[in-house]
Design a protein around this nucleic acid. Sequence first.
DNA 1: CGCTGCCGTTCCGTAAACGGAACAGTCGGG
DNA 2: CCCGACTGTTCCGTTTACGGAACGGCAGCG
Lengths: 173, 173
Amino acid sequence: MDPAVVGRRVRALREERGISLSTLARLAGVGKATLSGLEHGTRNPTLETLWAVTAQLGVPLTAVLAEPAAGPTVHGTAVTATLLEVFTDTDATYELYRMRVAPGPGQLSPAHPPGVTEHVTVFAGVLRAGPADAPLTAPAGGHLRWVSDVPHSYAAVGDEEVAASLLLRYPRR
Amino acid sequence: MDPAVVGRRVRALREERGISLSTLARLAGVGKATLSGLEHGTRNPTLETLWAVTAQLGVPLTAVLAEPAAGPTVHGTAVTATLLEVFTDTDATYELYRMRVAPGPGQLSPAHPPGVTEHVTVFAGVLRAGPADAPLTAPAGGHLRWVSDVPHSYAAVGDEEVAASLLLRYPRR
DNA sequence: CGCTGCCGTTCCGTAAACGGAACAGTCGGG
DNA sequence: CCCGACTGTTCCGTTTACGGAACGGCAGCG
């Protein structure tokens, strides 16, 4: 648990929104010294302080806390996926994961039940994934989709780790 | 944000484990007075204190923080987006949302800072979204992507609510 | 050059969160 | 009973996070 990490995230979120330290401090009702020290990690903020700041940024407290994984994490040889959310609608159940694929030989996953589809959005790196006999390739910003009732593979192209979101759709039986 | 709620959760977790306040305080390396005050909600704990206690209980910080639903981003009339995760890599910060768009007239969002891109993966329904003057359309399973430094719109096509994931990418400046 | 306005950091007195010790209450054993 | 070991709370001196003010730096403007 590193206060410096929390500080960096707060600063990143603030700068994304294009607001200055001074104004954020004023909006959140905390001192500029407090916010400055918080962003630098030189202070050990009170829950109240952190709450005031994150609320003003419009993010939950969890967004700045160094929590590695909220949900269960699945580790394979190349792929690490953490479950972010499960939700259902009238005709399917969805599982949304954040996925990371390490550079190297890649990984093979067994077939899912019939009708299951996977949707992958690539954030960083280049991903080659899909049915084992006909994988697809997507660069950062790209999107892949396949029916995963056959064995399928994931691999990073090049030396960069791939970051992506993975959605599994299980049709209601 | 209620410190009393945090206190009750800590006490509940401690009692589930059948350990006394005294021993938890000793294991966590905090004073008994500190833990007592924390559980009663009469103190405003430091991040360090709360971390020491929750770590000893074997739960993530998020387990005791009063966040029931991650902050609904009140995009407004038609769109509801809840922040699932924030993460950063070497050249950008990402915010991942689950988004729902209600059927009806849709909604306009103001421009983001330059360089920000949005990636949407549609799970259910049909979504029309993108730059306000040139929106794109995607059915379930589809994917949209645009540079969002201009005003942009979201609308559900047809009577079905749209479920989607939304990724905002903020380049490091 | 001033002057103004905003930026983020540092200084500093005050308020409060901190840990240790003292406290009353409760249980079980000799 | 009385004692020891334990519970959780309260007291208190020390530490430290707090906000306001003062500071230097950097634009834009007359």
